[in-house]
Design a protein around this nucleic acid. Structure first.
Length: 965
RNA sequence: GCGCGGUUAGCUCAGUGGUAGAGCAUUGCCUUCACACGGCAGGGGUCGCAGGUUCGAAACCUGCACCGCGCACCA
């Protein structure tokens, strides 16, 4: 075995081992193996994405779960892949093409040519994040990598669409949808985020046609939509306004020459809140969901005054047409002001829906879209509610349940090109007729607005003309509720195109990206074929994802799982926190507060990044990312590295048998603590408490093994010789040192501890543990598939059983003995400090032992106290004012020949006495309370009495020492 | 408006009924033969506020304040 370099250099080691693991096929899942299955599907990152800290958190957790499952003897499938991410990818590619000057708009290329470009882009950049996940150490089964637009996967998407259509759950209808004027597509409700806005509430007067000089005042935040108003509504039980119902108002906009303004009806509707605003509502059915519903109830015309990109159209009037909606607002206000109708403007804060992707306000818009009535909602709700599927942390179950309880139909069509095209074809001639009808609609609306049609036309008739379906496919009942598809003659819905495809036109829209993602757990495993992979690894065991996509993805996957496989797709869902910066802000490119994980890996190592992130990510809490955490991870790696070097310098046989007869108190103690660490880490991982597991490893390895055990072991291992000697001898390594049995036994304990610790650490820090596993030769005697080839398959350490503990004398007493020694050392070091002794100065200590002290313990004390000598003298008579500590192992003196400072010692002891008296007062106050003594459990009272005695004894000793001064 | 979290050391967070903790930061000493990406020893907290339950509350209950998030929203 070659000497381990002084500093851990991660890069080369990471590359070496990852390549080795891949070459040996360690990550590949074998459906035929006899082992129990463990599986997890990756939340597919966007195909054009790059690794973020969020991915690091998410995928490190998955890797920990996967690697530990392998060590537990499971057959593990961690299935990776990427998502085509419709809007995001199309936007990125289109923007890039525009920037390069290749096109001004995607229409310049046309659908097919544009899609070709997107595929080119995908081939070129699509692999980046996959390569980055490999750098992180992810043990995914890359042979099973999937993409949501793979041919087989796409076939699944079409298949479920057709299936849902046949079940009557998918329908097409003209409805109010969330329209993104930037992306030019409809969005689902989940893609809209409400943001508070500092806007203005405008109050304007509107004349009542039948009563000269009578005005109503309307409050609105959107005066630019006045041209789209088709009614004024008041609450029928509002005494102020009820009498106006049935009359008409004179709509002020669009402006007309000679004041030929349109009359719109004043209607009564209970939806109007007379507490709010003025109690008079302008009704704009085309641009507000609530208004649309009022419009439906009253059969009001719908006048869309905007173009799809958010600019005003001709219906808005000449002065507004062509303006952006926000520009138009200002102009509309000016018009009202000039007309003398503007009553007041006041600052107003309201919530406005924004497009999540494009970050612009969405426009409620009436349009023809495909909708889905969610399937298997009942089962999806029940499986979480009854605890069959577990959420970690649990509180997300409530959020999930609440959402499913109020679930609305899902708008699944998107006016994009990049995605799964809707598998629906229309007969050409029917479509042409429909387009004519649509044009007729437009003409009617225009006619209405131009005053050529009369609003006195019976409303029902008008409504039929205006609301007649553009394409007669889906139907809705009067309440807007969907009902099953009734007519199938003119449309073809199928996985395959119709045979006479030349007579048909495919629906131009694509499906929402999540309409493919929700099939991920089984579509990636070959569904609907009954593949071995599916049979063996579905349902999956764990899902790890962020709570921000609980509705987008998790809930929908659960429904899809039930609908097409009859089973929930996973057993546990772990929700990570959200990574934020030090100030608690979300990571974003525009803020520039998002460090590149690849830089962090290059600077600190993948293991350091993984450990640092895991250590600071408690269950269910957002993570404030600080590079300091990664530094801590790097430092921990270095510590591990150097502790291993220390072991290696001593040579000797690797992993020799431990002889119970030769065990020291320190050996027993560290074995006990190792057992504790095994239990703690195991339990924490079972409960998905990753940061607790990482902390337990850190505390055990650094705070117990390195700080105490290895330091104490130096006593047992004897003189090493000088540093120079050590490095010289290193040149001749490997060399077998001649070791006495005590030293050999110590090395055996170190090896035992390291071998277990490396395995506990491996899921967190795969690279360094693999390197050291081999460097120390722990793989030598192992079966190839149980740690011989790689630590990946070494068995996860089991807590020690009683036989083991008895055999090695691992008793509570052994633990207490070591702790007594540690406390004694700490007190002795305190004496050094208080006496102003430099840390590097060797001094003489004298211990008046409370009990017989084994030679080994005396030797350890001497080393840990950095003492020149440690005299054990039961009858020691210290010179006056010799600093002394009352330690568990006895009175520890620090004789300061010729340097005695009575005052300093008096002060030191005085402080100590004050402290003890304080504690004594506290405990006596409790014991003096009758209610405590009679009310508290006997055990607690007893414990307090003992505490009182201890403190009292200590106080007496201190007082004696003080008197002797 | 409803719901869910949170409020403990300068910072980030553990701690769920019995002697207030960790990491980072900070102070002092030390380049001692694994490690200065280190060692040793310190300093630092009326546990958001007010009530209540209890022998005993950072922890349990109630109310309030503030911070964050989600859902729903009235123009």
């Amino acid at each position: 075995m070659a000497e381990i370099p002084k500093t851990y250099e991660p890069t080369a080691i990471e590359e070496k081992w990852y390549a080795q693991w891949l070459a040996d096929g360690e990550f590949t899942a074998h459906p035929n193996s006899q082992k129990p299955a463990y599986s997890i599907v990756i939340p597919p990152p966007n195909v054009t994405g790059v690794l973020t800290l969020g991915h690091v958190l998410n995928n490190t957790i998955q890797d920990i779960l996967a690697r530990r499952a392998r060590m537990l003897g499971k057959e593990v499938l961690w299935l990776p892949g990427t998502d085509h991410a419709g809007i995001a990818t199309q936007t990125v590619v289109e923007r890039t093409l525009k920037k390069s000057g290749a096109i001004r708009h995607r229409d310049d290329l046309g659908r097919d040519a544009f899609l070709e470009k997107v595929w080119e882009w995908k081939e070129k950049h699509g692999g980046i994040i996959i390569q980055q996940l490999k750098k992180l150490g992810c043990s995914c089964d890359w042979s099973r990598e999937r993409f949501t637009m793979d041919a087989a996967y796409s076939a699944c998407v079409s298949r479920v669409f057709v299936d849902l259509y046949k079940k009557g759950l998918i329908y097409r209808g003209k409805r109010m949808v969330n329209w993104c004027p930037a992306s030019l597509t409809a969005l689902s409700d989940e893609e809209v985020i409400m943001k508070p806005q500092n806007g203005t509430m405008y109050h304007f007067k509107i004349a009542v046609a039948e009563e000269p000089l009578t005005f109503l005042t309307v409050a609105t935040t959107r005066p630019e939509t006045i041209p789209g108003d088709t009614a004024i509504a008041v609450n029928p039980s509002d005494p102020r306004y009820a009498r106006f119902i049935g009359k008409h108002a004179i709509r002020p906009l669009p402006l007309h020459l000679f004041g030929e303004q349109k009359l719109i009806p004043i209607i009564g509707d209970t939806a109007v809140d007379f507490e709010f605003g003025t109690g008079v509502l302008k009704v704009t059915p085309a641009h507000d969901k609530a208004d649309f519903e009022i419009g439906q109830r009253h059969r009001l015309p719908v006048i869309d005054v905007m173009n799809s990109n958010g600019t005003m159209n001709a219906h808005a009037g000449e002065s507004l047409a062509g303006l952006d909606r926000f520009e138009a607002r200002k102009v509309a206000v000016e018009h009202l002001r000039e007309l003398g109708f503007l009553v007041k403007e006041e600052p107003y804060q309201n919530n406005v829906g924004y497009s999540e992707r494009a970050d612009v306000p969405v426009e409620p818009r009436l349009s023809e879209q495909w909708f889905l009535k969610y399937p298997s909602v009942k089962q999806a709700r029940a499986v979480v509610a009854d605890g069959t599927m577990k959420f970690h942390p649990e509180r997300w179950a409530k959020v999930y349940d609440h959402w499913l309880g109020g679930i609305q139909d899902w708008c699944i069509s998107r006016q994009l090109w990049w995605g799964h095209r809707i598998p629906v074809w229309y007969r050409r001639e029917k479509l042409d007729a429909a387009i004519e009808a649509s044009v007729a609609d437009e003409m009617l609306e225009t006619a209405l607005d131009a005053g050529e049609a009369d609003l006195a036309i019976p409303r029902q008739e008008l409504s039929v003309k205006i609301h007649g379906p553009v394409v007669p496919l889906g139907v809705q009942d009067a309440g807007g509720e969907s009902v099953a598809q009734t007519s199938t003659a003119d449309i073809h819905v199928g996985v395959e195109p119709p045979e006479d495809v030349e007579n048909w036109t495919q629906d131009p829209d694509v499906l929402d990206t999540w309409f493919s993602s929700w099939l991920w757990p089984f579509a990636t495993m070959g569904w609907p074929e009954k593949t071995q992979t599916l049979a063996r690894f579905y349902p999956t065991t764990d899902l790890v994802t962020g709570p921000d996509i609980i509705f987008f993805w998790v809930a929908r996957m659960i429904m899809a799982g039930f609908e097409w496989t009859g089973e929930p797709p996973f057993k546990n869902v772990y929700f990570t926190g959200i990574i934020r910066d030090k100030q608690g802000r979300k990571m974003s490119k525009s803020l520039g507060n998002s460090p590149d994980p690849l830089d962090l890996i290059a600077g600190f190592g993948a293991d350091a990044l993984r450990f640092g992130v895991m250590r600071s990510a408690p269950l269910g809490v957002d993570i404030l990312f600080d590079e300091k955490n990664v530094e801590l991870g790097r430092n921990f790696c270095t510590k591990l590295w150097n502790a291993t070097r220390f072991r290696q310098m001593h040579g000797g046989e690797t992993e020799a048998e431990i002889d119970p007869a030769l065990l020291t108190s320190d050996d027993r103690w560290i074995l006990l603590r190792l057992d504790g660490a095994i239990r703690e880490v195991t339990l924490a991982l079972e409960e998905y408490r990753f940061s607790d597991a990482a902390n337990a490893l850190y505390r055990f390895f650094w705070g117990e093994f390195c700080d105490w055990y290895l330091e104490a072991a130096k006593a047992a291992l004897g003189n090493l010789g000088s540093k120079e000697d050590a490095s010289e001898s290193a040149v001749e390594l490997p060399k077998i040192h001649v070791l006495n049995p005590a030293s050999a036994n110590t090395l055996a304990v170190i090896d035992f501890t390291l071998a277990h610790t490396l395995r506990l650490m491996h899921p967190f820090m795969p690279f360094i543990t693999e390197e050291l596993w081999h460097a120390l030769g722990f793989h030598d005697d192992m079966p190839a598939d149980q740690g011989g080839r790689t630590i990946m398959f070494a068995h996860w350490p089991a807590p020690f059983d009683d036989d083991f503990k008895i055999h090695y004398g691992l008793t509570p007493e052994a633990d207490a003995a070591a702790l007594a020694k540690h406390d004694t050392v700490t007190l002795g070091r305190g004496l050094r400090r208080d006496s102003g002794i430099a840390a590097n100065k060797r001094v003489r200590f004298v211990l008046k032992p409370a009990a017989e002290l084994p030679a080994h313990d005396a030797a350890v004390l001497k080393i840990l106290l950095h003492a020149e000598t440690l005299d054990l003298d039961p009858n020691y008579l210290p010179p006056r004012a010799t600093p002394v500590a009352l330690a568990p192992l006895g009175e520890l003196f620090l004789p300061l020949e010729g340097l005695i400072d009575v005052e300093a010692e008096r002060e030191r002891i005085g402080k100590e006495i004050a402290k003890v008296e304080q504690e004594l007062t506290k405990v006596r106050a409790k014991l003096g309370s009758e209610t405590f003594v009679s009310g508290a459990p006997a055990k607690v009272v007893e414990e307090h009495r003992k505490r009182e005695i201890d403190w009292q004894e200590r106080l007496s000793q201190l007082q004696r020492i003080s008197a002797d001064l």
